[in-house]
Design a protein around this nucleic acid. Structure first.
Length: 982
RNA sequence: GCCGAAGUGGCGGAAUGGCAGACGCGCCGGACUCAAAAUCCGGUCCCCGCAAGGGGGUGUGGGUUCAAGUCCCACCUUCGGUACCA
């Protein structure tokens, strides 16, 4: 038997590790801690795919390496198990989602264990376990109990919220309402994506082109009372603290964009208060004169160019300001806008639409009366839902103004180089440089020949002299030119420049204008400095069964109607478990399925009647804090013991897919900061270092239209690809995402079956840099499998019946060369592990193996070191070889399983001696004018002068230098010699 | 459009500013074998040349430098994210 047989040795070692709990992590240890975390998976019904083991292998290698480096390593795994698929399955079959979920978890656990990861399984978590979600609910109660103190920039207990006197005077109910309005968890009426076919609300990311991601059902927008989390209060800190974490810049940038901080001003536009106008609108608009429309702008310096205003169709004041004459048109437009999803709105963004309300507002800087429109290019959810439109300097306003013929007034003069950078200018300039310019001019003016429009030709005429002069003299930008430019080329300028047409502010550059106008607005009480965020509050409730129930009660009166009073459960009442349902089918309306559980729904407490909250939490809830639960997974007194939090936090290394760049990672950070503010965790950021593994694509295929061929059916020639047996068709190579429909999914089970877990692990790391997107290749797996076979045969006699060392393995000192290469390999592998360059670490071991293969005598000590280096990558074969190579159980090895089985998992990591790295002689290239012309073999420690002499004396160099003079000599000892000749 | 990443052999990919293509795959040749598989040894960037040797070469065009895949400027392409955010 003992040729390399992963099918036998892998299960054997997995069993040993499991039975003796080799990787159990003690909480107390006199070692430095290292917390390595994987993004835990959603256990889907289709099982593990090869993308999962990529990150898991990388972290496992690091975990095993750090253990050998003497760290107390925490490396846990668990399940993000709430989610829609199990519920859909329940609807179809009646099987409880918990059953489906446990089956899927079992499959995932089996598959993950099959890969030999060194998780501490005693810390396994499952977000659907009541003992887990008890604490998810508990954290929700913390959010519910917290308000954000903007002055202290900190979340504080709701009991510490100062109650304004006028609220206090209105009694308990007012105080209650006031408190509820300040909590981090609050209820609000918001538009949601309701999918009637699925009977649920969907998250934005679950809606594609106005249809549900699953099943392609239509989705409508409707307002529903929802639970929201006030993440916007933490926007600034979520932004600032990005500077304190070691994350990929791309992810930080994505989070910054998502938070979307912009600085500017809020400006109030008053409505004119002519009594006549008011009377016409009837009693509903009696308060009109008190109304102002508040806008947010990042460009208060363009206020003088505001020629109209636009409200979002959903803006609260639309009906109040609309004149009777416009009422019908406005109503129709509002209806149309409401029926469109956000996506449809943006899809149809090419053409801007809108309707005049009939109302006017007063521009606070110049008292001008400007028309108010509604248009769906203004979003109700951003800023104040209303804008001042400056068509001369905003692309969107510009386009809208052109469509509806609204006035465009330039108030910012672009700098000169803006004009020169425009595409049109470049074309013109090229044209003017043309020696056939005069002839060209004649042609351009000839409408039969010219491709320019009449307007363009006219502008060309007007600008000719200016532009011609412009080659030699600086071009002067004037309002006249800018105006022509806008009208002719439909290009507006939206950057910073110099103010024109702006009253006493004229002449100021944009930056100083902004500052001075904000000061003016604040003095006049017409506006103020304002920072706005794109980030919106987090819609936290779902109309689903399979999620965490909210620990919230709604008080009801004797008729069963809600009184508006909400009460949180106490910690002692947790967990609030899900009721069993007979029928998981959607209710057909937005009433969540939990409303069907009549026994569960109503409770009496302190003599009052309550109805439970029937929404459930989104899937993100459980994954927001799972990294904390691992530290103390079985604690039933707290979500985690505080000493353990102090010991283990923050996570030292977090590895997962970039698809979670924003949502999961932002939500987690938010919860963590709230817990931090409330004193439950000891640090402000949860994940110190983050690494994203890249996506693994399917095997490269070679396409001709829709038909494709595999690598061995094609032939490459001159950078092009053809079918082997028919060269008439050129093929295009492409690697696609793995998907069932493309039929290119690689199943890890199959790979392990054929080559073993060690080969799968090794291949996934050898493919390329961890962060890179890379295509799968079965041939590549074969390659690393052959490598492991070679390592095996370095030590083991594969023709022998028992696992027996080859005679070549001897207790002798390694020769000089082998010793040098060994230490070099230790260095390379160690350095590569520290930088997570796992692909090159494997290359280094391959090179050393290739060297050893050629040796007829293989010192046992050398093989043992190689095995230790290999062990984090391919632990099973390493353990097996370690056992064969080690005559005695190593005293430092923790016993695993039965007699004679000793793991290498806690062996000290090999160290290298820098003095042994150097060879006695090295090859140094000699360049002449930067090109390598000769190579010298010299002593490694040769001095600068000696090296130059050696180069000059070299025959090849001499012949190259014949008849030339050396102008300069560069000698880099140990590296090269470069002779510069004339 | 904006933000981010990346462009290197037939393929995956290596290269603190210092010999481009490590390592693996594939391919070619050889050994072993009756034969095949497996394994082992050698070769393999392109062009000219029997060879010795010579020339070219890291998306494109410029630049810095004795020396550039690597640094700087401009552009092109691909991938990922995001998108009326005022």
């Amino acid at each position: 038997m003992p040729s390399y047989n992963p099918k036998v040795i892998e299960p054997r070692w997995q069993k040993l590790w499991e039975e003796s709990k080799t990787f159990r992590t003690p909480d107390a240890a006199n070692k430095p801690k290292y917390y390595i975390l994987d993004m835990f998976p959603y256990p889907s019904g289709s099982g593990l795919h090869v993308g999962h083991p990529e990150g898991y292998t990388a972290t496992d290698i690091l975990a095993r390496y750090k253990r050998m480096r003497g760290f107390n390593v925490l490396h846990p795994m668990g399940w993000d198990a709430f989610g829609l698929p199990a519920e859909q399955y329940a609807i179809q079959t009646g099987t409880h989602p918990a059953v489906t979920t446990q089956n899927n978890i079992n499959t995932f656990r089996r598959q993950i264990k099959m890969l030999g990861f060194s998780y501490d399984w005693d810390r396994e978590v499952d977000t659907t376990d009541p003992n887990y979600f008890k604490w998810t609910q508990w954290i929700f109660l913390v959010l519910f109990d917290t308000w954000y103190d903007a002055e202290q920039k900190k979340g504080r207990p709701i009991s510490e919220l100062p109650i304004p006197a006028e609220v206090k005077s209105q009694g308990d109910k007012a105080i209650r309402t006031y408190r509820d309005s300040k909590r981090l968890a609050y209820q609000a009426e918001v538009p949601v994506n309701w999918c009637p076919a699925l009977g649920t609300v969907l998250a934005n990311e679950e809606v594609i082109d106005g249809k549900s991601e699953r099943g392609n059902h239509p989705v409508v927008r409707m307002p529903l009372k929802q639970w929201m989390l006030r993440i916007t209060d933490y926007a600034e800190r979520l932004l600032d603290d990005l500077d304190t974490v070691d994350w990929p810049v791309a992810i930080k940038e994505q989070q910054r964009n998502w938070i979307g901080k912009s600085e500017g001003a809020e400006v109030d536009f008053a409505l004119p208060s002519e009594p006549e106008a008011l009377a016409k609108r009837g009693p509903s608009s009696l308060t009109l004169q008190a109304l102002t429309i508040r806008v947010f702008t990042t460009r208060p310096d363009t206020l003088f160019g505001a020629t109209y205003m636009v409200l979002a169709p959903e803006h609260a004041l639309v009906d109040a300001i609309t004149t009777p004459a416009q009422a019908a048109a406005v109503a129709a437009y509002k209806k149309e806008a409401a029926s469109k999803s956000d996506l449809e709105r943006t899809e149809l963004a090419k053409k801007k639409t809108g309707v005049f309300t009939g109302a006017y507002a007063i521009n606070p800087v110049n008292g001008e009366s400007i028309p108010i429109w509604i248009a769906d290019y203004v979003l109700a959810t951003y800023g104040t839902g209303a804008i001042m439109a400056v068509p001369a300097h905003d692309e969107r306003d510009f386009e809208f103004a052109r469509t509806y013929n609204l006035p465009i007034r330039p108030v910012v003069l672009p700098p000169k180089d803006w004009l020169e950078a425009t595409k049109v200018f470049k074309v013109l300039q090229r044209f003017f440089k043309d020696p056939h310019y005069s002839a060209g001019m004649a042609l351009i003016k000839d409408p039969k020949v010219s491709t320019l429009s009449q307007d363009e030709a006219a502008l060309l005429g007007r600008m000719t002299s200016l532009l011609v002069r412009g080659f030699d003299n600086p071009l002067t930008m004037t309002e006249e030119i800018y105006r022509s430019w806008i009208t002719t080329f439909a290009e507006c300028f939206s950057d910073e420049g110099t103010a024109i047409n702006s009253g006493s502010f004229t002449g100021q550059p944009t930056a100083s204008f902004k500052a001075s106008i904000i000061a003016w607005l604040e003095k006049e009480g017409k506006g103020k400095r304002k920072i706005n965020y794109k980030l919106r509050d987090w819609l936290f409730s779902r109309q689903r069964y399979w999620g965490e129930p909210f620990p919230i009660l709604h008080e009801i009166d004797s008729a069963g109607n809600p009184t508006g009073v909400i009460e949180a459960l106490t910690a002692s009442e947790l967990p609030l478990e899900l009721p069993k349902l007979e029928d998981y089918k959607p209710t057909g309306n937005p009433e969540p399925p939990l409303s069907k559980a009549k026994d569960w729904l109503f409770v009496e407490k302190n003599g009052k009647r309550y109805r439970r909250e029937t929404n459930t939490m989104p899937q993100w809830a459980g994954s927001c804090w799972y990294y904390l639960r691992y530290l103390d997974a079985k604690n039933d007194k707290a979500f985690c013991d505080s000493a353990k939090l102090k010991q283990w936090l923050p996570v030292d290394l977090y590895v997962g897919g970039a698809e979670h760049a924003v949502l999961h990672l932002l939500y987690s950070r938010f919860w963590h900061k709230v817990l931090f503010d409330r004193g439950h965790v000891p640090c402000a950021e949860p994940f110190k270092r983050l690494v994203n593994q890249g996506m693994i694509l399917g095997e490269t295929r070679y396409y001709a239209g829709d038909t494709f061929y595999t690598e061995d059916e094609i032939v490459a020639e001159g950078g092009k690809y053809y079918k082997k047996d028919d060269r008439s068709v050129e093929l295009t190579p492409r690697a696609d995402k793995m998907s069932k429909s493309r039929g290119n999914v690689i199943n890890p089970d199959d790979v392990v079956n054929q080559y073993g877990a060690d080969s799968l692990r090794l291949y996934e790391m050898f493919m390329g840099p961890l962060e890179a997107t890379k295509p799968w290749s079965m041939r590549g797996v074969e390659g690393v499998y052959r490598f492991l076979n070679r390592v095996w045969r370095l030590a083991i006699d594969d023709r022998h019946e028992a696992v027996k060392l080859l005679d070549a393995v001897q207790d002798v000192e390694p020769d000089k060369e082998t010793l040098r290469l060994l230490h070099q390999t230790i260095q390379r592998v160690t350095d590569d592990l520290d930088t997570m360059s796992l692909n090159t670490a494997i290359s280094a071991m391959m090179e050393f193996t290739n060297h050893l293969t050629k040796q007829t005598v293989r010192p046992r000590s050398v093989l043992k070191t190689l095995v230790l280096l290999l062990s984090p990558f391919a632990p099973h074969i390493a353990e097996e070889l370690w056992q064969a190579l080690a005559e005695l159980p190593s005293p430092s090895g923790r016993g695993v399983g039965g007699e004679g089985n000793h793991t290498l998992a806690y062996e000290p990591w090999p160290t290298y001696d820098p003095n042994l790295l150097k060879a006695d002689t090295i090859e140094v290239p000699v360049q002449i004018n930067g090109k390598v012309k000769a190579k010298l073999t010299v002593a490694a420690d040769i001095g600068k002068d000696a090296l130059e002499q050696a180069a000059r004396n070299d025959d090849k160099v001499k012949s190259q230098l014949e008849g030339k003079t050396i102008k300069k000599v560069i000698v880099v000892p140990g590296k090269l010699v470069n002779l510069v000749v004339g």
